[in-house]
Each structure stands twice: as structure tokens, then as C-alpha cells.
């Protein structure tokens, strides 16, 4: 399985305060899946990722998909198959946008 990295042309930043707020909301049982925790700037355009997307994004520094699932399964309390599917879909979307590099 090939390792995956973030496209180095994409400038990004974790929004630490937003992330902390999302984590608190989730602990209260609120739905915060629409809240951005990572900002990306690509070709002058800005995008944001929600908590799961942001956690995946931060780990993409030369990691294969299976290890990515293993790592996130320790953080997110969801069925592993569902998590694996969500991660696969998310990576496919990033790939379509040209935001990933495969080694």
C-alpha cells in the first residue's frame, strides 16, 4: 500500500480554538460535524475541514491508508468499517482535488 502525503503547494493551519470548541461540543453530545477545524488555502482559494477531515489531514505526512485507519480508530469511537469507509471516501475526494501526493 502506497504512502500518502499532503500536496506541499497547499498551505494549511489548524484552528486550535475552533478544534477545542468542537471537541467540547462532541463531548456534550452535540453535532459539530459541520464546523471547520483546519483551514486550507489552495490557489488563492480557502477551504475548511471538519474535525475528522482535519485529523486525517494532519496525519497525511507519509502514511498508508491502513495505518491511517488504525491511528484514527484509537481516537474516534465508531465502528472500524464505517471509519475505514469514511476515510476512503474523504481521501478519494482530496485526490480528485489534487491535494494528495502518493509515494
Amino acid at each position: 500500500m502506497r504512502n500518502i502525503r499532503r500536496n506541499p503547494d497547499i498551505i494549511w493551519r489548524e484552528e486550535e480554538e475552533a478544534r477545542a470548541e468542537v471537541v467540547r461540543a462532541m463531548e456534550r453530545g452535540d453535532d459539530a460535524s459541520g464546523e471547520g477545524t483546519v483551514l486550507l488555502v489552495e490557489s488563492g482559494m480557502m477551504h475548511q475541514l471538519n474535525l475528522l477531515g482535519g485529523e486525517i489531514w494532519k496525519l497525511l505526512d507519509g502514511i498508508d491508508e491502513e495505518r491511517l485507519v488504525d491511528t484514527l480508530a484509537m481516537t474516534f469511537d465508531v465502528d472500524r468499517d464505517i471509519l475505514a469507509r469514511d476515510i476512503r471516501d474523504f481521501l478519494a475526494d482530496l485526490d480528485r482535488r489534487g491535494w494528495l501526493v502518493h509515494e
Binding site: A18, L39, Q48
Partner: peptide, 12 residues
């Protein structure tokens, strides 16, 4: 998707 809060510091 719009941010519900201002970023923690300027982007530019």
C-alpha cells in the same frame, strides 16, 4: 461552508 467563528489569528 462558512466559518461559525473568526480564525484564531489573521490568515494574511
Amino acid at each position: 461552508m462558512y466559518m461559525s467563528r473568526i480564525p484564531f489569528s489573521p490568515i494574511t
